[in-house]
Design a protein around this nucleic acid. Structure first.
Lengths: 332, 332
DNA sequence: AATATTGTGTTAAACGTTTACTTTTGTGTT
DNA sequence: AACACAAAAGTAAACGTTTAACACAATATT
C-alpha cells in the first residue's frame, strides 16, 4: 500500500507538505507542488480515508436509511441521492429497515460505529430515539419524506395533506361524491396526512364522510389487491377511489380486473407517488406526483451543508406534490 | 466520544484487556470480563470502525456496484445482498454506474480509498481494468450477473444461454416458428448469451434464422416500446417474441396495446428476469426467472469467504434460470 | 543595526484501535 | 528454597492521516 510517506520521500519533502498540496490547506511553492503531484501520479497514490477520518476528518460517506429499496419509490430516491452525493465526492451506505424499528436502530448503531458524515433517514420510527442516538454522536441527520416527533433536526417532506386534498378534489370535480380511500399502515405519518387531506376536501365540498369508505392497506401491491373484496362488499359502493400510494392503487386495479370490472369505466382510481410503474401499466395511472428529484437534491444539499458546516440553521422544507392526469380516472 | 480508554479506565483495566474482551481474542477472567462489559454498557460504548480498519482490521463494509438500482432487477439484487450482509454485521456502499465505464472506475477509486473489505460488481466494463485496480489494492472481488474477461476472480452468473434456449424452445413447443428476438445493448454479455440460446434453439428445431427478426433495445421499458414499430414493419411478421429482459417485454406489450394488438391473442411474448413487475401487469408476463435470492446469497457468501479468508479458492458458479408460465403466451 | 514580520517548510503528536512484547503473579517440581 | 513454567493482564508501538507548534530564511520596520 502506497502511503503519504512514500510520496513525501519520492518528492523529497515532508508528509505535511504533501498533505497541504492534496488539501490546498497552505501555500506550497510551485516547484514543490509539481514534484509532489508527479510523485502522486507516479506512485498512483490514493489517500486512505480511514486514516483521514480517524484524525477527525471525514470519510465522505452518507448513511441512507430507507424502508425497502425494492419499492420503486425508495429506489428512485436512493438513486437520486447517490447521484447528488457522487457529484460531491461522497458515497452512500444504503440501509433497508423493512419498516422494522429494531433493524433501523441496529443500522444506526453501525452508522455511528463507522462515523458516517451524515444520515438521510426515511424513518420507520415515530419516536426520536434513533435521531437522538445519531445527534449525540454528533452525526447530522436529515429526516426525509416522513415526519418524526423531533424539533431540532432538518426535515424535508412533501405536503401530503395537500396531495390528499388535491386528489380528492379532483375526483369531486369529475362529478363523484361517493369516494373511497385506501390508507396505508396507521403508523406511517405520510399516509395519515393524506387521509386528512381527503377528509378536508370532502368536508369542504359538503360531502358527508362515510367512515366505512376508509380502509387500511400495507402500501404494497398485495394490500391494494386484497382491499378489493372489502370494497365490493361495501353497502353503497363508491364509484371513485383514492389510494394513498401507487402500488396499492395498481394492486386495487388489478384485483378489479379479475372481477371483470374496468378502470376507469366502472371505477375511477387515483394514486399517490408517481412511481415509474404508473406510466407503464394499463390504464396508465392518474396520480399525485411527489417531486422526487427535488426531494433527493434538497435532502442531499441539507445534509452536506451540515456536514461541511456551511449552513447550520435548521430547515423545515415542504414540497408541493403535483396532480398528473393519465387514464385511470374519467368524468362520471 | 467514548473510546476504549474510557471503558478501560472505568473498568480499572487496560485497553488491551478491553479489546480482548470485545473480540474474544484472549482469555480474560470472569471477574474482569464482567467489569468490562458493565463499563461498556454503562458508557454506551461503540467501537470506532475507522480506527479498527486503520490498524489493519476490517471496516465491515462491502462495495456493491450496479448499473442502476432504479431498475427493479438490480434493486432486488441490492436488497438481497444488503440482507445477507446485515446478517453478518456488514454494510453495503451502493454505487450506480449508469453503465458508464468512467463512473464505474471512479467509484472503484473511492472504494479503494475507503478500503472496503470486498466488492460485488455487476460490471459495465468488459475489460478487467477495474477488477485489476481492486485486486492490486488487495480487495477481493466477486463478479455477478455479467461475465468479464478475467480469470482469477470469483464469478457467479446465471446460465443466460440456457435461459434464451428455454424461452425459445417454449415458444416453439407452443407451435410458433416465426419468432422474433429483442436483444439488449450489444456490449452487455448477458444479452448476447441469451440471443445465442435463441439461435441454438431455432437451429436445433430446424427453423431457419431470420436475421431481420433480431433487433437491439436498451434493456428499458422505452426500448421495448420503441421496437414495436420495427416489429410492425417486418415483412413476414412473427407471431411470437422473445425479449431478452422483462422491462423491454413490458414496453413492447404496451406499445402493441396502443396499436390495438392484444397479447397473447395476436402475439405471444416471453421475457427474462422475472422482475416483480412481471407478476403485476396485465397480462401477467411469462418469463425466464433468474434465481435472484440465490444469486445474491451466493455472491455474498463468496465475498465474505474471501474477506474472512475461510475459502480462498476461485469459484465459477453458474445458476440455472427457470421458466415461469403466466399469461403472455398461448398456444398457436 | 536590531528587531519584528512574512514566507516556506519540517517535526511530531494526535485520532482509537489491535497486538507483539513484557510483566506480574501463582503453581508445581526439584 | 530455588527454579521453571503457565496463566493473566499490562505497556506501548503501529496503522496513515492532519495540523499545531516550531524552525529558518528573507524581507520590512523601527
Amino acid at each position: 500500500m502506497i502511503t503519504i510517506h512514500d510520496v513525501a520521500k519520492m518528492a523529497g519533502t515532508s508528509t505535511a507538505t504533501v498533505s497541504h498540496v492534496i488539501n490546498g490547506t497552505r501555500f506550497v511553492s510551485d516547484e514543490l507542488q509539481k514534484k509532489v503531484k508527479e510523485a502522486m501520479k507516479e506512485l498512483n497514490y490514493k489517500p486512505n480515508m480511514m486514516a483521514r477520518g480517524l484524525k477527525g476528518g471525514s470519510m465522505k460517506t452518507i448513511g441512507v436509511i430507507v424502508p425497502d429499496c425494492t419499492n420503486t419509490f425508495f429506489s428512485e430516491i436512493s438513486r437520486a441521492i447517490d447521484r447528488c452525493c457522487f457529484a460531491k465526492g461522497y458515497n452512500i451506505i444504503l440501509c433497508n429497515t423493512d419498516n422494522d424499528i429494531k433493524q433501523q436502530s441496529s443500522y444506526c448503531d453501525m452508522l455511528i460505529s463507522k462515523m458516517v458524515d451524515g444520515v438521510i433517514m426515511i424513518s420507520s420510527d415515530n419516536s426520536d430515539d434513533d435521531i437522538n442516538k445519531l445527534t449525540e454522536a454528533s452525526i447530522p441527520v436529515v429526516i426525509a419524506d416522513r415526519t418524526v416527533n423531533h424539533k431540532g433536526v432538518d426535515n424535508i417532506i412533501v405536503n401530503n395533506e395537500k396531495g390528499g386534498y388535491d386528489a380528492t378534489k379532483y375526483l369531486i370535480s369529475l362529478g363523484y361524491t361517493k369516494i373511497a380511500c385506501i390508507g396505508g399502515p396507521t403508523f406511517i405519518s405520510s399516509s395519515n396526512q393524506r387521509i386528512e387531506g381527503y377528509r378536508k376536501a370532502l368536508k369542504e365540498s359538503g360531502i358527508e364522510i362515510n367512515e366505512d369508505y376508509i380502509s387500511h392497506g400495507d402500501f404494497h401491491f398485495a394490500g391494494g389487491n386484497k382491499s378489493v373484496s372489502d370494497y365490493m362488499n361495501l353497502k353503497d359502493r363508491p364509484e371513485a377511489v383514492f389510494a394513498t400510494n401507487d402500488m396499492m392503487a395498481l394492486g386495487f386495479i388489478d384485483g378489479l380486473k379479475s372481477l371483470k370490472m374496468e378502470v376507469p369505466k366502472d371505477v375511477s382510481v387515483i394514486g399517490f407517488d408517481d412511481v415509474q410503474l404508473a406510466r407503464i401499466t394499463t390504464p396508465k395511472l392518474t396520480t399525485i406526483a411527489q417531486p422526487l428529484n427535488e426531494l433527493a437534491q434538497k435532502a442531499t444539499d441539507l445534509i452536506l451543508n451540515k456536514v461541511e458546516k456551511t449552513d447550520l440553521n435548521i430547515s423545515q422544507i415542504v414540497l408541493d406534490p403535483i396532480l398528473v392526469e393519465r387514464d385511470s380516472c374519467r368524468k362520471k
